[in-house]
Each structure stands twice: as C-alpha cells, then as structure tokens.
Nucleic acid binder design. Sequence first.
DNA 1: CGCGTGATTGAAACCCTTCAAGTTTAGTGG
DNA 2: CCACTAAACTTGAAGGGTTTCAATCACGCG
Lengths: 190, 190
Amino acid sequence: MKSILKKLITNGILSPHEISSIQIKETKINKGTILQRAGEPGGRAFYVKEGLVRAYTIDEKGKEHIFMFASEGWMVSDFEWRENAPALLFVDCIEDSLLEIIEQNDIIKLNRLFETKQVPNQINQLMNRIRVLQKRIILLMSADTLTRYEDFIETYPDIVQRVPQRMIASYLGVTPEALSKIKSKMLKKH
Amino acid sequence: MKSILKKLITNGILSPHEISSIQIKETKINKGTILQRAGEPGGRAFYVKEGLVRAYTIDEKGKEHIFMFASEGWMVSDFEWRENAPALLFVDCIEDSLLEIIEQNDIIKLNRLFETKQVPNQINQLMNRIRVLQKRIILLMSADTLTRYEDFIETYPDIVQRVPQRMIASYLGVTPEALSKIKSKMLKKH
DNA sequence: CGCGTGATTGAAACCCTTCAAGTTTAGTGG
DNA sequence: CCACTAAACTTGAAGGGTTTCAATCACGCG
C-alpha cells in the first residue's frame, strides 16, 4: 500500500530500502487549516488525494493572490526546498482534504539520493525554471509596473543593456509608452 | 568534445552508445533569424552558448508578448514536444548567436530512451507544470480579464463549482468586483 | 544628409481599482 | 423551521493607471 506521491517521485530509481527511508504522511486536514506560511522555513510538498487546496501570496496591502488550486491528483509545492529557505507561498485547505505530505528534510534526503544515483540534473534545471515562472506569475498578479521593472533590472541587469526598451516593456506586459513614462517618473524621484 | 546541452540532458543516465544516437547541432545564427514559429509543428529546444534569444507570442492584434529572454547558458523551449504538436511560441535571435539545437524527433527519441530507463516520471510532472505556468503567464500578459475567465472555466470547470468567486478573481488577478461586472456583461450578451 | 527605428510626450478613452452601499446567500442558534 | 447574522456577491460613482493614437524628438546608418 504505497503512497501515490512516493510512486510519483521514486519511480524506478530508488531501491525499496532507500524508498523506505522517505516518510510520507497521509493526513486528513480540515477546511481552513493553513499548511504553510510564506516567510517561514520548512517548505513542504503536498499531494492532494481528496479535497481542494490553494497556494497563494499576500501582498503588502494584505491582498491575497492565488497562485494555484490543487484538487484530487494534483501536487502543490513552491519548490523552495533549500535548507532553512523561507517558503514563498501560503498553502491552505479550501475543503476538508486528504493529503500526502512530505516534510522538507525528506525532500532534501530525496535530492541527495538522486544525486548519488546521478539522476540527470535536468530535474534541477526544470525545478529552477518552475521557480522562475512562479515568481513571474506572482509579480504579474501582485506588483505594479514600476516594481516589476525594478525587479527586472535587478534580476537581469545584462539583458537591460542588450535589448531595446520596447522589448523590456513587452516582457513586463505593458506598452513601450507606459514603460517610458515610468522611467521618467523614476528620474523625477531624484 | 561533448555539447553542453547533451551533458545537461543525458547526464549519468544514458550509455555512450545511446547518447551518440542523439544529434545536437551547434549552429551560428544571425540576429533577427526566426528559429521557431508559433502554430507550426516541430518544436525544438535551444541552448544558448553565445548571444541572446527571445521567446514570445503574438496576440490577435499583432502585439508581441515576450515570454522569456535567454542569454549565455540558458535554454529556451516551449516544451511542446508531442509529435506534430504546433509550437506555442515564436523564438528568434536578438543578437548573432551560437546555439545548440535539438530537433523534435531527437527530443522524442530521448524521451523514449528515458522511458525504457524508467527515469522517474517526475520529469513529466515537472514539464507539465511548466507548460501550465507558461500558459498562465502568456494569458496574464496578452489576454483581457474576460478571456482569462472563460479560459479558466474551460480549463478548470470543477474548480469553478467548488470555490467562491472572489477566489477565482484572485486567481485571475482582478478584484471580486471586476469579476462580478464581467459576469453580468457575459449575461447581457445572450 | 535623409531616412527609419526607437524613445518620448501629451490627450482622450478605457478598464480596473477603490470605496461605499445594497442585495443575496449560507450557516447557526433559538 | 424560522430568524438572525456573517459572508459573499452585486451595483454604482469616483479616481488612477494603462492603452491607444498622434506628434515630436533622438540616434545610427546607408
């Protein structure tokens, strides 16, 4: 009676002994229970067997931005699994749910096992990509254009130098005119 | 003298013989060259050794929305690799570039090799997730709220039934009031 | 020099947010 | 089962930011 999440993650790669060192708790969770808080360390992964879960951020104005819903068969995680790294997302139950939960230390253990197996670091590449896309979505939903522009400059300083402004605008999701006006607003601040 | 992309993808899993069956062309591409067109089959993967590449969509008004830039060391692909599936993104060179390119049939071959190796389908899970996030970003940048709402209903009909409207609004990136007004606008259409 | 592309600026229109009030729905306790 | 209350949804008006459109400016290149 193996957990679905275990099957998903260890499929074919790990020996039964190795697999048995990973704990996956199946837990009933009541509607409204908060499973993870942004900013607190100990990011986990949740597999939804029954019920409905959401992952979201809260911006500085206190407004919630839902990053994803997860119903039966979906997995939720913000992929922030470096030791002591603060979670990026809040996760809570919208309905009474039955979840499989992997704690962070088990995820880290899993990653180490994969490393010794030389599982392709393609997996790391993909998880990195997911984190980047995740951040982009959160910014698109919760940050104004100025903030997104400042973040872009900070994250990709080299790109800023190499592409025309209109392409940066196109990346930020605004017109070239809007970006131009934002830049002049930035100058006036000084 | 192995390609970086090959190392990235096959690392530790495939035998030299298997690896040799995968072709990765290293190619110089001129600034402005279009590498892939949305809608056309034959999605590929590009690894940027030198230069700068962008991936983008074009909406029905002809406006470009840049999904990502890729400079030295980055990989670009829309992960649409099912046989004959139309590409989702345009890809072109912003600067003269040196790229490693894997054609679609080689990607498919690679996936089959991984399957026989029982590489964890975690990889498929992650790629799926990436496709979902990718679509979300494109919609956030290029589609108005009504379109995003209609897409949400179509994509997650069960979720619509199970969560309050304000959460759907929060997922779509608008206020509950705005979503309410959009719904009444939809009713007037009929 | 003249041309084309990209960036800037301004004005009007549009959509969304914010705030406030009113209405509906759902859940709880009498 | 009804009554009450809280939460959710709707609707309207005012304000803000962005888009759109148009004109102008700046720059590099043939």
